[in-house]
Design a protein around this nucleic acid. Structure first.
Lengths: 194, 194
DNA sequence: GCACTATATGCGTGCCACGCAAGTTGTGAG
DNA sequence: CTCACAACTTGCGTGGCACGCATATAGTGC
């Protein structure tokens, strides 16, 4: 199958890009040359550019792809579950199992040159997430802002949780931190905080 | 004063950049050359590059600067006000009075090449906002995620509200849309939605 | 008035994204 | 089985951009 091969090379390129970026460290992103990425992925530089239109995009593609699947995770929750619980469970399952690659994630989130692309990656989750929420509560996203606002809040919580989880070298699992962060924005789960 | 001149030229460059981008339209961002921006701002191309390290950054600087001041707006609210009300009032005042330049904002938010930088611009609000919230409720941001999560949710709500306000050519003021969006995430203002 | 520092500018360099066209490989119809 | 076709890869050339460095200029404090 051709599409299979396309996905394989795409992943090869993005993986190689992230690996090289990690090797050079947050400061030396400018030293990650396109030809290095292409060479590491076993393709020509021109082919790399057929898949990604910037090094940043290639480096963040892994996170971007993961975020895009969050909406799917929500859809697979039982419909009987209350919305807030379903979201929390979906997110924790999605990000908790197969804990994110700490090194790669830290690279992405601590490199200023990758800031915009990293935000794009997290924000990628919003559209499918909003669609899933809208379907779950059965509203028209054209007039009700709740699905999109909630999706943005969730994506933001995931991002904040990731930042916290990376910065303090605590022993908490990412799932734990994520759960605490989500509790602040999920509906009908408003703990008296602080 | 030297700093005053620096701010003036910075604003001149960003304004010129945004104006040219609007003229070319969302599709033709690649046609906005650096030398055009510099010429329109009355500086040399090299000087432009001393202020901004990319065209995208220059174009979005106006929105970025505005977002950065949102935290300040919250700090100037009376401390007696409940947090949710204070945030809503601060945001609506900050973005509602002097309604955002609809054309420029639409340009920024509908141009895919500007997506990352636009997200950076909105996200700029988060840090000062989180600091303001933390100061208001008196918690330590190092351990309590609430300020950062709430700040991210607010910034997301502003972004969603802006998108909605731009896309539908409705007669609602931005302040109205923003208020509706914020109501979905602000604490102790949880309307039975949908 | 003078030395000094911050800012503006010109020039040169390396790299990058992408259009274009040719080569290569897998695919489906007859 | 063969052949025509489509998808994918690759090489090459082009225009542009970010930035380091050295220089000119202008505003500042003693």
């Amino acid at each position: 199958m051709r599409t299979h091969n396309k996905l394989a090379t795409r992943e090869a390129i993005s993986t190689a890009a992230l690996r090289l970026a990690v090797e050079k460290g947050p400061g030396g992103l400018a030293l990650v040359r396109v030809r290095d990425i292409a060479e590491a992925a076993g393709v020509s530089p021109r082919t790399y550019n057929n898949y990604f239109s910037s090094r940043e995009e290639a480096i963040c593609a892994v996170e971007s792809d993961r975020a895009r699947r969050l909406g799917q995770a929500l859809l697979s929750r039982p419909t009987a579950e209350p919305l807030g619980q379903a979201i929390a469970a979906a997110a924790i399952e999605h990000y908790g199992t197969a804990e994110p690659d700490k090194v790669g994630l830290r690279m992405i989130m601590s490199t200023s040159a990758l800031e915009g692309e990293a935000l794009k990656a997290f924000t990628t989750a919003e559209e499918p997430l909003a669609a899933a929420i809208a379907e779950r509560i059965g509203t028209d996203p054209a007039h009700d802002l709740f699905p999109q606002v909630m999706a943005a809040a969730i994506a933001g919580a995931v991002r904040v949780a990731a930042r916290h989880w990376l910065n303090r070298d605590n022993t908490e699992s990412f799932a734990t931190v994520l759960g605490r962060a989500l509790a602040h924005v999920l509906p009908s789960a408003d703990p008296s905080d602080s």
